[in-house]
């Protein structure tokens, strides 16, 4: 969570703007306020989970028992280039074309 710690269950408008920047969304002041309310409600809902005692439970990112799923190192055919580029919003010759990237 970027920015300063909010009050329990509350998003600050500064934090909404930080998230918006990271996701490249341009929000008006009015939208920031609206998102603040909605995000705060979501956060509050998730905070109810923190009431569960997890002190004896291993953290997990997965809900299935599956593990160590690997494939052998064999090269298989790729897509023909016209299919690769078929869904690109823009293309130029052999390449996908995107807006200028400044670094």
């Amino acid at each position: 969570m970027p920015g300063s710690t909010p009050q329990a269950g509350l998003f600050s408008s500064e934090q909404v703007r930080a998230v918006a920047r990271l996701t490249r969304l341009h929000l008006t002041d009015e939208e920031v306020e609206r998102m603040r309310g909605q995000l705060s409600a979501i956060l509050k809902h998730f905070e109810s989970l923190s009431k569960v005692d997890t002190s004896n439970i291993e953290p997990t990112g997965h809900t299935t028992e599956a593990h160590s799923v690997m494939r052998e190192d064999r090269a298989t055919p790729s897509l023909p280039r016209d299919l690769v580029l078929a869904n690109a919003p823009d293309k130029e010759g052999e390449f996908v074309r995107v807006r200028p990237v400044l670094e």
């Binding site: 090269a75 298989t76 897509l79």
Partner: peptide
Amino acid sequence: TKSKMFCGCAADYQSAEPNTHVCPVCM
């Protein structure tokens, strides 16, 4: 390696024509 980290596309991109070692996982 012969193939990419998470899919079967050939990993030797250096000598390949642009966008020819690409599959739905890569995209």
